[in-house]
Structures are given as structure tokens and as C-alpha cells.
């Protein structure tokens, strides 16, 4: 569901395409045309613009601009933190929700999907309502501790976490349901400790699915804009992530700079796609293996 679940591809050529040839060619060309206009040309355009001043211009725009450099640095802090927390908690949630039945289980399952329904701007607004230092619900506490969340990096991490809550858990839950818990039960009966069960039995079974979820979570975290935009307050060299930096440079009419940052983000997105293809095959293979056993 939600396009991020594992797809087991049917590659068997049993499907007989019995539409007339001209019709098939027409549909295929139409697909190519749409893909070109909507996806491929925009992709090429990013790199054409980014390298319009040559490689050295691109390099300059990326690394000789102190603010851009800082945005790269900030993204490298915010994204891994958010992904790490959501991965650990996502695995815990998937374990709890698939291995046990308890009242409220369905409710928690639905809650995991909720961030998909919340506009990122609304997500950012929620954190502002809670943590802004003037009228926020936690303002007295934060002021007494001298700790800033909104307009500072902790807010960026929280906003990023919110929008990426579902990714790891949503990927693991169907996979773990399909795998069942026979192997874990066998391990328990043989006297394995909880850690041994997780590291030696469960993790090897879910590792590709987990990695798949982490990669998607990572891609979404890098690209997050709305929620981060709201909580960042956009302070130079403090709260600009790369995605925000793209917008700032664009507003400043610095197109080459904007496209240079965008090209790095695009390369990350493309590597996500490549990794995804590899992992989908791994997951499909491991599921086949477990079902044939």
C-alpha cells in the first residue's frame, strides 16, 4: 500500500498481448511521451542547468558558498538523526504489532498511517504550537531550561521525523506478517535469549525489507520541505537544510546555485531508485525462499 510496499514482480511471459500491433505501439509511445514530458526532460533539465557554467562552476556553487556548505552539513545531521529514531522505533512497532494481539492494536496501526494524511505545513504548525517560546504549550518548560526547538535544529529533526514516521514500520509490518513467527517460536523453545532471537532469527529474515524502508525514509527525509520550512524560521547558516536552500537561492535569483544544490538532491533521488530496484529483487527472493521452505 501507499506505493512503498514490496512488489513481487511477475516476469513470466504468460500474458498474451492480443491487442493489434498498431494499438500496442500507440499506447507504448504515449507512455514514453508522457514519461518524457513529466519525468525525463525535467530530470535532464536539472543537470543541464546545474552544469551551465561547467563543472568548475557547479563545484564553486556547491562548495565555495558558505551558506550552501552549511545547508549540506545541517542536512547530514538532521536526516540521519530522524531516520535513526524512526528506524529503531519503527522496528519496535512492527515487532509489537505483528507478533502480539492486544486491544488497541488496530488503532496504533491506523495511527502509523496518519502522517500521510497530514499536510507537512500542518505538521510544522503543530510543532510551532507546542514549542514556540512565546505562546507554545511547552514554552515555560523550554524557557526555564534555556532550550530552543522551534527556529533551531531540534525542530528540524522533529518535523522531519513526523513526516517519515510511517516508512520503516509500514514496510516491515506486511513483510513480518507474511513471514509468520514459526522461526522465532522455535528459537524460544530452544532457549534463545530475546537479543539472540532478534539478531539471529528475525533480522536476517527482514534485513532487505528493513533496508528498503530505511532508504525510502531517508529519501523522504532529505526532500522534506513544508514541515521544515515552517519550523525553521529560515535563519542563515543555522536552519537551512538543502531543500530549503534550493528555494532560498531561487528567490535570490541565483539559478546556477539553486540548480547545483538541486542536482545533488536529484542524484540522491536517482540512487534511491537504483537501490530500490536492487532491494526489491532481494526481498522478492527472500520471500520466495521462505515460502518454499
Amino acid at each position: 500500500m501507499h506505493g512503498n510496499s514490496v512488489r513481487t514482480q511477475k516476469t513470466a511471459g504468460k500474458m498474451v498481448a492480443n491487442e493489434p500491433l498498431w494499438f500496442r505501439v500507440l499506447l507504448i509511445s504515449l507512455c514514453y511521451l508522457i514519461a518524457l514530458v513529466l519525468i525525463i526532460v525535467p530530470l535532464i533539465y536539472v543537470f543541464v542547468q546545474a552544469f551551465s557554467e561547467g563543472f568548475s562552476g557547479w563545484w564553486n556553487n556547491l562548495f565555495n558558498d558558505a551558506e550552501t556548505r552549511h545547508s549540506v552539513f545541517l542536512t547530514l545531521i538532521v536526516v540521519p538523526l530522524a531516520v535513526l529514531v524512526n528506524t529503531v522505533c519503527g522496528v519496535a512497532a512492527a515487532w509489537t504489532l505483528t507478533k502480539f494481539k492486544f486491544p488497541g492494536r488496530t488503532l496504533l496501526m491506523t495511527a502509523l498511517d496518519l502522517p500521510f494524511a497530514v499536510s507537512p505545513v500542518v505538521a510544522g504548525l503543530m510543532f510551532v504550537l507546542l514549542y514556540n517560546l512565546r505562546t507554545g504549550y511547552f514554552a515555560p518548560l523550554l524557557n526555564s531550561m534555556g532550550f530552543k526547538i522551534i527556529f533551531a535544529w531540534p525542530g528540524l529533526v522533529m518535523a522531519t521525523m513526523f513526516v517519515t514516521i510511517p516508512f520503516v514500520a509500514r514496510e516491515l509490518i506486511p513483510l513480518m506478517q507474511a513471514l509468520g513467527d514459526d522461526e522465532e517460536l522455535a528459537a524460544v523453545s530452544l532457549g534463545a535469549s530475546p537479543w539472540q532471537i532478534f539478531w539471529r532469527v528475525t533480522l536476517p529474515n527482514i534485513k532487505w525489507g528493513l533496508l528498503f524502508g530505511v532508504i525510502q525514509c531517508n529519501a523522504r527525509a532529505i526532500g522534506e520541505f513544508g514541515a521544515v520550512y515552517v519550523v525553521s524560521g529560515r535563519i542563515e547558516r543555522e536552519t537551512y537544510t538543502m531543500a530549503l536552500r534550493v528555494e532560498k537561492l531561487f528567490q535570490d535569483y541565483n539559478n546556477p546555485g539553486s540548480y547545483a544544490v538541486a542536482s545533488v538532491l536529484t542524484l540522491m533521488a536517482l540512487s534511491t531508485l537504483v537501490l530500490k530496484i536492487i532491494l526489491e529483487r532481494m526481498v522478492a527472493a527472500s520471500m520466495e525462499q521462505s515460502s518454499s521452505e
Binding site: 506505493g3 519525468i39 526532500g223 538543502m242 528555494e247 538541486a262 538532491l265 533521488a269 534511491t272
Partner: peptide, 12 residues
């Protein structure tokens, strides 16, 4: 390539 809109930052 159909997945690109999932992976590409919306700002881009």
C-alpha cells in the same frame, strides 16, 4: 522511473 516523484525532493 515512475517512482521518481516519490524519491525526488518536491522543491526540485
Amino acid at each position: 522511473i515512475v517512482d521518481l516523484p516519490f524519491a525526488l525532493p518536491t522543491a526540485v
